[in-house]
Amino acid sequence: MSVDTSEVRRIAHLSRLAMNDDQARDFAGGLSDIFDFVEQLDGAAIEGVEPMAHPLDAEQRLRPDAVTEPDRREVFQAIAPAVEGGLYLVPRVIE
């Protein structure tokens, strides 16, 4: 699939992008190359290939779910300007 500069300029206008003639030619060539590659991929034989989320069969190592910080809620709320029922009170910002 070939993309010409008029299509690139129309897309740039819709995207509100400023683009000169040299940039439009460069983008047209780059987009044409990308679309050609996608057409090439579309022709690949994929029958019987199971979809996968990742090409490697790896598992993510997770850290143990353990508390590492002491509970300092009362210390922080003692110095807060306004607290009620364990919650911080802040000025209303939405009418």
Rank of each mutant, 00 (worst) to 15 (best):
E74S: 14
G85S: 08
G29E: 03
Q60F: 14
F27Y: 13
R16D: 15
E59Y: 02
F27L: 10
P81Q: 10
R25S: 13
L14V: 05
S6I: 08
T68W: 04
R25E: 15
S32N: 08
Q60C: 05
E7W: 01
M19A: 08
R16V: 14
A53N: 08
D36P: 02
E95I: 01
V93C: 03
V67R: 04
L62S: 04
M52N: 03
V38F: 07
A82Y: 06
D42A: 14
P91E: 12
F76T: 09
G86T: 06
P91N: 05
P55H: 09
E59D: 14
Q40A: 11
V75Y: 13
D36W: 00
F35E: 00
R73S: 15
A53Q: 10
V3W: 06
V93K: 10
G43L: 03
R61L: 13
Y88P: 04
L14P: 00
G48L: 00
R73H: 08
D33T: 04
V75D: 15
E95G: 14
P64W: 00
R63K: 08
P70A: 07
F76D: 11
Y88T: 10
R63D: 06
F37L: 14
T68Y: 04
A44I: 08
P51Y: 10
E95A: 15
E69S: 03
R9S: 03
M1V: 13
H13T: 10
A66V: 15
P70Q: 04
N20S: 07
R10A: 15
E59M: 11
G29D: 03
A28I: 06
A18S: 11
L31E: 06
I34G: 00
M1G: 11
A28W: 03
R9W: 05
R73Y: 01
R73N: 14
D57E: 13
E69M: 01
L89Q: 05
A80Q: 13
Q40H: 06
L41I: 02
L62E: 00
G30M: 12
R16W: 10
T5L: 05
A80F: 14
I94R: 10
F35T: 01
D42V: 08
P55V: 10
Q77G: 03
A53D: 09
P64C: 01
E47D: 15
F27N: 01
D4E: 10
S6K: 07
I34Y: 07
F76H: 14
V8T: 06
P64L: 00
I34N: 01
A28L: 05
Q40L: 12
R72S: 05
A78Y: 07
G85F: 08
N20A: 09
R10C: 03
P81W: 05
A53C: 05
V75Q: 15
E84M: 06
P55E: 06
M1R: 11
E69N: 01
V90D: 08
M1A: 13
P51C: 09
G29H: 07
V83A: 04
D57I: 09
H54M: 14
T5F: 02
F35N: 04
V8M: 04
G43S: 08
E47Y: 00
R72K: 11
G29N: 09
L41Q: 05
F35D: 01
D42S: 13
A24C: 01
P91V: 02
E50P: 00
G48N: 06
L17N: 02
D57T: 12
